[in-house]
Design a protein around this nucleic acid. Structure first.
Lengths: 184, 184
DNA sequence: GTCTATACAGTGATAGAC
DNA sequence: GTCTATCACTGTATAGAC
């Protein structure tokens, strides 16, 4: 039986492999197992090999965040956008049970390979959140601080949740970070 | 010329390689280059190979933190211990220019290999800091929250500093986290 | 588009001379 | 204790049949 796949079907599967094993820890064999596609098929979809997969996976993550988090923060009513972000963050990171692929890529030399999309992801998140907080009435300096604290806190909580095996730290941290938005 | 090394001399060098490339991204060839030791010598010091190097490196990091951070927090005068922690953290992480090896190991499946030392490192840090805050007059629930926020914030700031290339986020975050210790 | 077969460099690890 | 030579294996990537 030959199942015909599209690139868009296989990218999310590859993303999970990268998320679990990291860029260097991910082998083509692992990707073959997880996707069910032979190497021929994989190189047909990704002529650039593993590096192209990495780029596409980062673009896929960025697109999800753009749709569910960045755009609601940038365009919509600020309070609703922030609430939407909170819900989406908890869903996406499975309440702390799933790490941030972009953050993980940032920590080792994988960052040098994908420096631009990695930087862009975090810069846009902080700026979108900061903008929403300004429109919600915070001063621009306070908004900047709160937005940075939030993104920093989410990343740190994901590290600690996985390091300690206690996912609850993620809920506690994000709850406090959200509460801090109310402070002037 | 044959330089005689000791295991204690070579462990910090290997630690830097793991820190830069991650556990999976680190190859024996890289370690050979950085340490100047041939494979024979390396396997003489580490019969367990790469995994033993990983364990020793984690133990080395933990020993540094125990001496410069955990013990001052646990044993000494609380305010002095917290100040000492702040100084040591800034020095160790080079003001955001150097990531946390333990946190990096925690993010991918490398965690499963070294779960115990990784968990112990973070648990001890949070508990030591929490204890110092209690002795400095905070309630036990507040102390717990502030300690968790601090360690989460340090880890998250290291991720963002490297992701954005802006190390200053580390100084800003740690400064705010330290200031929060004064709040009741 | 998918597969199998394969090239070939690099992997972690070992043996043995010095 | 250090080195070189070499192991068996896995890594990414390619070629070509179907």
């Amino acid at each position: 039986m030959k199942t015909v796949h599209e690139k868009s079907d296989v990218v999310p599967l590859i993303a999970e492999v990268f998320r679990e094993f990291g860029y260097e820890g991910t082998s083509m064999n692992l990707i073959t197992e997880r996707t069910g596609l032979g190497k021929g098929s994989l190189y047909h979809f990704f002529p650039g090999g593993k590096e192209e997969m990495g780029r596409d996976v980062l673009a896929h993550v960025d697109a999800w965040f753009a749709r569910h988090i960045f755009e609601p923060l940038e365009a919509g009513e600020p309070k609703a956008g922030i609430e939407q972000m909170s819900t989406a963050v908890d869903k996406y990171f499975r309440s702390g049970g799933r790490i941030c692929l972009v953050g993980a890529f940032a920590l080792d030399e994988t960052r040098d390979r994908f420096a631009d999309p990695i930087r862009a992801y975090f810069v846009r998140w902080i700026e979108a959140l900061s903008g929403a907080l300004v429109r919600a009435g915070r001063s621009s300096s306070t908004a900047r601080v709160r937005a940075e604290d939030y993104v920093v806190g989410v990343q740190g909580a994901l590290v600690l949740a996985r390091a300690t095996g206690d996912v609850a730290v993620f809920a506690r941290s994000t709850q406090r970070l959200m509460a801090a938005f109310a402070n002037p």
